[in-house]
């Protein structure tokens, strides 16, 4: 709230504290559950179609997948820097970090769209094979999450520039940041699972 804590003041021992709202964490848990079920469905469907999955996986671009991983991780890092800057009341700098994160996230979307354009040219669709069904479903479901994450980051960027967050009153920023990191976390399983493991 209206704390007068200065960042340099000696710190008392801290009780465990959930960064972000309880409601968003319940939501994150629900999201992870949804992706978890999808991953399990992929893995077990692959187990009964190994040759097909391995052959069609080979046609994916691992370069694009790795580039996207780097973009998401970098965006996540920038969000962390933004939160740290806001804790030190450096709103302008926090805004810059968030803008950089938004740029990386947008880059992810661009790379993904090139991948999709390529796939559609090759007549890949939800009905063309079980692997394609999972590849398109999983990545598109994640794609939608990146878009939502970007909307949240843009809202945070506006708020940060308006100086809405302070040490001790970081709830909104931490809530949005936690969501973005969830989107990142899911991709860290998706990339090796769908693009690499065979």
């Amino acid at each position: 709230m209206n704390t007068t804590h200065s960042p340099a003041a000696p710190q008392p021992a801290h009780a465990p504290r959930l960064a972000g709202d309880l409601a968003i964490w319940i939501f994150i848990l629900a999201e992870l559950l949804a992706f978890g079920v999808f991953f399990a469905a992929y893995a077990f469907t692959r187990a009964s179609n190994v040759a097909l999955f391995d052959a069609e996986q080979l046609a994916l671009s691992r370069n694009a997948g790795a580039l996207n991983t780097v973009l998401l991780l970098t965006a996540g890092y920038f969000v962390v820097r933004a939160v740290q800057a806001a804790e030190h009341a450096a709103d302008r700098i926090a805004g810059h970090w968030l803008a950089a994160a938004i740029a990386c996230g947008t880059g992810f979307l661009a790379v993904k769209m090139f991948e999709y354009a390529h796939a559609f040219q090759a007549d890949i669709s939800l009905s063309s094979s079980p692997f394609h069904m999972f590849y398109l479903s999983l990545t598109f479901f994640h794609f939608m999450h990146v878009i939502l994450g970007l909307v949240i980051l843009i809202a945070l960027w506006k708020n940060v520039r308006a100086g809405r967050y302070r040490l001790g009153d970081m709830n909104g920023l931490e809530t949005g940041a936690a969501y973005w990191h969830m989107v990142d976390l899911v991709w860290l399983v998706l990339f090796p699972l769908v693009y690499v493991i065979h």
Binding site: T3, H5, H14, N63, V70, Y77, V80, Q84, F191, P192
Partner: peptide, 30 residues
Amino acid sequence: TPDHGPQTHGTPRRATFQWIALILATLATW
């Protein structure tokens, strides 16, 4: 609870090292 300090989100230095390590790990997977 106003009693939480900057270290909840670590230091920039630590975050930067972790980021570099994450990128290297991604390269390994690639």
